[in-house]
Amino acid sequence: MTIVATPPTPLERFNSLAFRVLLDCLARPGKVGRLPPPPFADLPPLPDGTPPNTVAVAAWLSLLDQTVSFAHAVGAEWLPVDYPLTRWLALRTNARPADPSATDFALLHDPSGTTLFGDLNIGSLLEPERSCTVFLSLPEIVPNGAALRLRGPGIATTATVGLRGVAPTELAAIAARPSQFPLGIDLFLIDQQGRCLGLPRTTQIEVI
């Protein structure tokens, strides 16, 4: 049969492969997925001069376009609209930088961003799907490790996962993230190696 479509570009291929990992991880909290290698590497640095987690940025960007808004933070501070990396993100996606309380997608470049969860939109009863989707970059996710115990849809009984380089207060903030089902934020944790953990608002999280 004649194929009437062009093959996907490298960016489109990454976006589709990354989506399948995100979907699988969100549907199965506790399962640690592996994102494909990012399709670009030319990111402007963070305020301290270090490069952002490229694979986390790429996975996050794969969902952004002109119809959605975003905000991102380093440490416990949201980065301003005119910050070079913000401008780079807006230019790449046509997405609008927005106030955290109204943003569709948030990227927290390090675990101390967990203190900012309370700033984010949790949706409304009429439109719970309008809540913020949050990507959190951290040093390392350890499959079957012993930092968090998870229960809820997508998990047969319980699951556990380890998180390295995350302070106890930050673990507690993840466990206590805004989630009063059906309201709440949905969270993806992504480490430096591209490991991915999904924590939808349905997951009950307990610090071990």
Partner: peptide, 8 residues
């Protein structure tokens, strides 16, 4: 789809 999964 991601929101649908988070809101079964």
């Amino acid at each position: 789809l991601l929101k649908a999964v988070a809101l079964p």
